[in-house]
Amino acid sequence: MCVKTHRPAEGSEEAVYQVRLPLSKRTIDLVAGLIRKRRKALGSRWRKLAPGAQAVVVLAVLRHDQRLADMAGGNAVAASTVRRWVKEAIELLAVRAPRLDRALRKIARSGGAVVLLDGTLVRTRRRTGVDNRKNFSGKHKAHGLLFLALTDEKGNLI
């Protein structure tokens, strides 16, 4: 008779998964600073992780498409918490992005005559349910999100 248990394999409960996150300290500090300001504005007294650690988790999810459950388990938080952190960070970063009309005016004032708009598909995992086909690119035959970039004639990101 075989008895099934739900215990991890011997010695596996202490396993650690590491990846190299190629980000500058400046990027992590920027995101952590935005999170810190947001917490102060909300009057948040306590969070599970410090703003810097939260920024690293968010950037790992965004940069390497790490599974939320994996990042949550390694940081002793729920996957829904990581999802909320990612959404919050995206909103904070989006507020900093210049509006298109303002960016174009700035280029015109500086004497620029050429603006380049280019895009690429950032591949993502397939979604389930009704969101499955929403992010599917027929051209590339893959799931993903369209990333657009506006540059000047020298290729500098605007």
Rank of each mutant, 00 (worst) to 15 (best):
T5A: 02
I35C: 09
A108H: 13
G33N: 01
G33F: 00
K134T: 08
L42W: 11
G138Y: 00
V57L: 03
H143V: 13
R109Q: 12
L100A: 15
R39M: 10
R102M: 06
I107E: 10
M71F: 02
G155V: 03
R26Q: 10
T120D: 04
H143E: 10
C2L: 00
M71H: 03
V16R: 14
R39L: 07
G119E: 07
D29I: 14
A15Y: 00
W46F: 12
N135V: 06
V57D: 07
R127E: 05
A72N: 03
V61E: 05
L23F: 10
G112Y: 11
S110Q: 14
P51F: 05
G112T: 01
R26P: 01
F147I: 03
S12T: 14
M71L: 06
H64A: 06
I158M: 13
T81L: 04
E13F: 15
L34N: 02
A149R: 04
R125M: 02
A76M: 09
G129L: 01
V19N: 01
R109A: 15
L116S: 01
V61C: 10
G33Q: 00
G73F: 00
R123L: 04
Q66L: 13
H140I: 13
R105L: 11
G73N: 13
A76W: 08
A149F: 10
K154W: 11
Q54R: 11
A149D: 02
D131I: 00
E14Y: 06
W85Q: 13
A15W: 11
R105H: 14
L21Y: 01
A9T: 09
T124P: 04
E13D: 10
R127I: 06
E10M: 02
L23C: 12
R38V: 06
M71G: 12
T151P: 06
R45L: 06
D29W: 13
V95R: 13
P98E: 04
D70N: 11
S24R: 09
R105F: 00
V19D: 02
A69M: 13
F136A: 05
V3K: 09
F136P: 09
G155A: 03
I158Q: 00
S137V: 05
N135G: 01
T5K: 05
V19L: 15
I90Y: 05
A103N: 07
L23N: 10
R109V: 15
V58A: 12
S12A: 09
L150D: 03
D70F: 11
S137L: 09
T5I: 14
L145S: 05
V122R: 00
D70G: 10
L148R: 05
A78V: 09
V86Y: 05
V57Y: 00
L42V: 02
I107G: 07
V130W: 13
R105G: 07
A60L: 11
Y17D: 05
A60C: 01
D101V: 15
A149M: 07
A103T: 08
L49C: 02
V82S: 00
I158F: 12
L117Y: 10
C2R: 08
H64Y: 04
R83C: 02
D131M: 08
V130P: 04
S137I: 01
L145M: 03
L42S: 14
A60V: 08
R38N: 14
G43E: 01
